[in-house]
Design a protein around this nucleic acid. Structure first.
Lengths: 338, 338
DNA sequence: CTTCCTCAGGCAAGCGCTTTCCTGGAGGAC
DNA sequence: GTCCTCCAGGAAAGCGCTTGCCTGAGGAAG
């Protein structure tokens, strides 16, 4: 592996000069030397050792993001936005998947601190777990202590920069829609109970229910883990436990799609027999039959905002950005048959 | 930011001892000192500077992967497999999105070389572009010169470790299915013409056509870019340019889903009026209506194999792993109406 | 009581780069 | 001709860590 010293030797200049030419320092250098050095660089296929550079200079280059799972469309979209802005700023992005394991999340925060990332983005729901949250806050503070920047996506339980989707209002929106259509026996497919995203969305649905003089009893809530198959299973449970159910509100689109599959398997038509709604407005929501009524969250935009905030050095005050949710009516909802 | 020197000072030991304790070296250390050092680490919230470690020691830790776009389900699945194995080996993964820009791909190879990654995985189709391929080979060789490991996914045009999905046989499989059903006017929605994945799959379809005494003339091929919307547009073009078209073979599932939407918009029923097929067997293929007949590629598995090969130090010979494609019959195919 | 061995622990030399500070020569002003 | 200024280029001090090698104390063996 060629080093800067090799380049300098080949070009017949000092290492200092070579360094200045290679990374375009402010210091002036003769054209003559410049070409000699550049030729040596090309000849040796020299690429500066990023670790040595990082160690020697103060400024950081890479940014790190921690998501639950990039292959989940929800995070894939957010990541897309994150990347777009990072790339525009010439930053390399290191992506870490916690796979919804709080401990792994903690480890990754440390890992990224070790890598001295310029910015850290934590995306994804928080957990209802005071011990974990405490540990996380401590690690994040340690990270901030190194001078790095931080933005949280969807975790209002912590302080600092954050971008929060309006989960509760979104739940309210979709809940209102379903109850206003006249549904009385409404089941909910929730995400993992430990996630704040779940409880927030659920709270919104409950608020809507209350306004319509209804409630969502525990037997009408089934917990999935936000993926398609768990949605199918949960829908089946709901149907078994609640004869006469006329609507299912899934707290994300993947589970709604699973519910659709489960319903189809039972020969139930949507929305004729059962109304189904999703949440997030993933691309798939448009393509299933019937197309899903859901709540749109501008995920790419959320990612982009988060990265922009993290990379914007001027901000001194912690910034909190609320991302509004919006109801998207499609074909999966209808009034109940009497 | 606490350094190892701070830890050593606080614990009252030499930096060497502190280092050995912190990263569990083979060298023996008294229990007494160990606890003192560990206490100091906890108190200072010490995390070793990854760059300094990387610089000082020979072995590399992180691995890098370059994909076209993680938010594309195809790559999301591959990435999932890649990550799973990397995590099992205790490696941090740095993901880079080239967004199908060859130049960016080149840049990322350099960037990851600069970061001294232990392994580099290049996922995604190659390009029909000799100049680019040459440049890529040179950069990859420079990377290999640093002692890093490399695995290519889906690029048979380069040598070295690689995992190649059987695109041509897959195209043949789906083509045979459609022609055997009796379709004569068959349109193809291809991916970008510069990608080898496109030409390989298309070649398979053409081979099947030939075997059935048919052909795929240029007017029955529309080029998309592998995403849903381009599939919808391409399907519309195909329909306009070819009255009487009875089948559409899309070279990936996203575009097939787009085609389904375009067909629905025109009031054409699938498969009654038009047969549609996909490729890749993404999760969405099961959930659209009708469910897509497609070609399954075990993407997660491909990612996992690729990372395993890259991380397996014992391999001296370049390894080539062919991943078989498999036809999955669902509801989107039927014989043409007479 | 020597001598030798063993092994915990410390010293210090790098890893590859950036950057401050210094040097020496060229050119201008007097 | 002398002195000053200016600036291109080089020497060298780290950045934070690992690790080969050395030291010295304690114990076993003679």
């Amino acid at each position: 592996m060629a080093t800067l010293a090799d380049v300098a030797r080949l070009a017949g200049v000092s290492q200092a000069t070579a360094s200045r030419i290679v990374n375009g320092s402010a210091k002036l250098v003769t054209e003559e030397l410049r070409t000699r050095v550049l030729r040596a660089v090309a000849e040796l296929q020299y690429v500066p050792n990023a670790h040595a550079q990082q160690l020697a200079r103060a400024r950081r280059s890479a940014v790190g993001i921690i998501v639950h799972d990039v292959s989940d469309p929800y995070f894939a979209e957010i990541t897309r936005g994150l990347q777009r802005v990072a790339t525009a700023h010439g930053r390399l992005v290191m992506i870490c998947n916690s796979y919804r394991d709080p401990d792994r999340e903690l480890e990754y925060v440390e890992l990224l601190r070790a890598h001295q990332v310029a910015a850290l983005i934590l995306a994804g729901s928080g957990y209802h777990d005071a011990a974990f949250t405490g540990a996380l806050v401590r690690k994040l503070e340690a990270y901030l202590g190194t001078g790095g920047r931080l933005t949280l996506i969807g975790r209002h339980e912590l302080t600092g920069n954050c971008v929060v989707p309006e989960n509760e209002p979104g739940g309210y929106l979709v809940g209102s829609e379903v109850f206003a259509l006249g549904h009385r026996r409404v089941g909910v497919i929730a995400g993992p109970a430990v996630l704040t995203t779940t409880s927030d969305r659920l709270a919104g649905v409950r608020r809507a229910a209350r306004e319509h003089g209804r409630a969502v009893p525990a037997r009408r809530i089934a917990y999935g883990n936000f993926d398609r198959d768990s949605g199918a299973t949960a829908a089946a449970h709901l149907l078994d436990a609640n004869p006469g159910l006329t609507a299912i509100i899934a707290l994300n689109d993947s589970m709604a799609v699973g519910a659709l599959a489960a319903l189809r398997a039972r020969g139930l038509a949507v929305p004729r027999d059962v109304t189904v709604t999703g949440f997030d407005d993933m691309p798939v929501a448009r393509d299933v039959t019937p197309a899903l009524t859901t709540v749109r969250l501008p995920l790419v935009e959320m990612g982009a905002r988060a990265m922009a905030i993290a990379l914007d050095e001027t901000g001194d005050e912690p910034r909190v950005e609320r991302i509004p949710a919006e109801l998207v009516r499609r074909a999966s909802t209808a009034p109940p048959r009497r």
